[in-house]
């Protein structure tokens, strides 16, 4: 049919058609505000962050520690009841160097979002966060990093209580 049809429908417009008033349109701004409950597990996680501790949750059946914590193990569908303090160090699993904002505006100083595998959690278990205090060109996958926390009195129990993660200069253990 594709080759038999000559006239496919659909009328393209340009941004300028709107700006120059060539088409009629309705503009509306929807406003929605929310107050989300943290829930049980993330509530513990946020309380931990306020104290400067990253919490995971352990499944004894599957022998794994997940982060962020949750109330049920997806693998075995048993409850996770034990919260485990993890380190505030980790390894860069992957990263990006991002030059645009969420609404696709250019930014001069790029952001460096990363998935960071947290020390103490099972291998491959990371969280989304950002890197800082580092030349973007020097970031590599596998790089060791450490959390930079807000001062204790400024923490509010949020993921942003960790400002960013910076390269870890590790002291060689004997």
């Amino acid at each position: 049919m594709s080759k038999q049809i000559k006239d496919f429908r659909g009328t393209p417009l340009r941004e300028s058609d709107f700006q120059e008033g060539k088409v009629l349109y309705v503009h509306d701004a929807l406003r929605g505000e929310y107050a989300w409950d943290t829930g049980i597990a993330i509530g513990h996680y946020l309380a931990g962050l306020k104290k400067g501790v990253i919490l995971g949750a352990r499944c004894d059946h599957c022998r794994k520690i997940v982060v962020p914590p949750r109330t049920v193990c997806e693998w075995c569908f048993r409850p996770l009841t034990e919260y485990v303090p993890l380190q505030d160090t980790g390894t860069v699993n992957t990263f990006s160097i991002c030059y645009v904002t969420w609404d696709v505006k250019r930014i001069e100083k790029p952001e460096i979002p990363a998935v960071i595998e947290i020390d103490g959690a099972s291998p491959g278990h990371g969280i989304l966060h950002k890197l800082g205090d580092v030349n973007p060109e020097e970031v590599t996958i596998g790089m060791r990093v450490q959390a930079v926390w807000k001062p204790a009195e400024e923490r509010e129990g949020a993921i942003t209580d960790i400002l960013y993660w910076r390269p870890l200069k590790e002291v060689k253990k004997r």
Partner: peptide, 19 residues
């Protein structure tokens, strides 16, 4: 709670996965 506070954008997840 755990991600949107970081002001992510959709390109991030593709860039992270591609890398």
């Amino acid at each position: 709670t755990t991600e949107r506070a970081l002001k992510p954008n959709l390109l991030w997840i593709f860039a992270l996965e591609m890398n």
